[in-house]
Write a protein that binds this DNA or RNA. Structure first.
Lengths: 225, 225
DNA sequence: ATTGGCCTCAAACGTATGTTTAAAACAGAC
DNA sequence: GTCTGTTTTAAACATACGTTTGAGGCCAAT
């Protein structure tokens, strides 16, 4: 066959199929037949299916984390001795995600969906790989969030960050479907960037909510343990 | 063997394993050996693995949706001609989830995790089943949200609801893991109820955020299409 | 005691998976 | 043209899966 760049063809096919169907639900045979390469090529070039999953993540996470680090550098520099605000931090992350060079028009939503899957389908090996390889920019983001929300207790902040991650990963991981639904219902077209612009204020408001609500309203059956 | 209630033993085991590992990653052999029943029992009593998944959801979703409808009834009645507020609506939902009778101490987090999985791992057949069987209370919840947020445009509301669902499903789908992480880091114990009590104010604040941020801040590379 | 309907059981079925093998094809260097 | 290392190929491998089978057990009704 002698097609050019077997490795990249496999990565492209795997990326798309993983994003569409998840990891366990995507077989090597689906990948290799979509990539139009021999079944054995995956194990020859990558060693195993798990290693292929890692490679798929590495291909977009490595440049992304570099971009992100640079964005954080610029942000901290431009702020002088003031710590960056919550909004600035969130926008730095959003900008970095949106401006990533895309391999195709589906690029950014695949990117998002894979991140979501990494979180929800994380199969041990993936989580370990991601932590080890890309833990640093993540920790840095966490540190920025911490200094940007000094009013929050550590526990509150922890949970609210989880809520943010959830809203983001979930929305982005199904952004294609959600966009289509909205388009069918209202005829409104929505770009990923617009979704991001709606998401950030939502997250910022949530993060900065006053927690006067920690006691449920009158009549609620929820009680503090 | 003549153990009592094979059907229920299978449901218990399946519920727990699905919540722990997801659907495709849980085999019938794992389920039957945990339940200490014969492998063929699943196909005999349920017909197929997919039907078993449906049965697991039906077992807790049927009473839950009944409780929820009742909670909405009471809420609307107690409000008279005023429509229920956003906070009231969210708390009605939360209350209904928390007060569900639990089969064991892990009950509610299993419940939540399954709901999260239903959203993120939805395998077509499950989504169709859930829509068909439990679409009504869901639509009602949506209607309540709409009247509780008249200030939002339909498009804004649509996206913010997605953000809420995301934060909820996502957090709940990994709540066990997140609780453990927090416990290891800070020694703080967290109940599902406490998570819910932190989540609701976050969601309410996000829903009611002013969208002055729809234009990204100075220097952002994000631009309106 | 025998029948008949539900249930259980061990075993097998067919299929799909990730992985390995060994031969063939290829490309560049000498 | 021959050799060398890399890549591709078709085939097979071992294992796991969901499902089906048919024989047997159980128990209440006849």
């Amino acid at each position: 066959m002698a097609q050019p760049d077997t490795v990249e063809r496999i990565l492209d096919a795997a990326e798309e199929l993983f994003a569409e169907r998840g990891f366990s639900e995507t077989s090597l045979r689906m990948i290799t037949s979509k990539a139009e390469v021999n079944l054995a090529a995956v194990n020859y070039h990558f060693g195993s299916k798990n290693a292929l999953i890692h490679a798929v993540f590495a291909r977009f996470l490595t440049p992304f984390s570099a971009t992100l680090e640079k964005a954080f550098d610029e942000l901290e520099e431009s702020c002088g001795d003031q710590p960056p605000t919550l909004n600035q931090t969130l926008w730095a992350l959003t900008d970095s995600a949106v401006q990533m060079p895309q391999r195709n028009e589906k690029g950014i939503s695949i990117f998002m969906r894979l991140l979501g899957l990494a979180y929800t389908q994380s199969q041990g090996h993936l989580r370990k790989f991601l932590e080890q390889e890309y833990g640093d920019p993540f920790s840095r983001f966490m540190r920025l969030l911490k200094t940007a929300t000094p009013q929050l207790s550590a526990v509150d902040r922890y949970w609210r960050i989880q809520f943010m991650l959830g809203a983001t990963a979930f929305t982005m991981s199904s952004s294609d479907a959600l966009r289509d639904i909205l388009q069918n219902k209202t005829g409104v077209e929505t770009s990923v960037q617009e979704i991001a612009m709606r998401l950030v204020p939502f997250l910022a408001a949530g993060m900065q909510a006053e927690d006067t609500m920690l006691v449920p309203p009158k009549g609620s059956k929820v009680s503090v343990a």
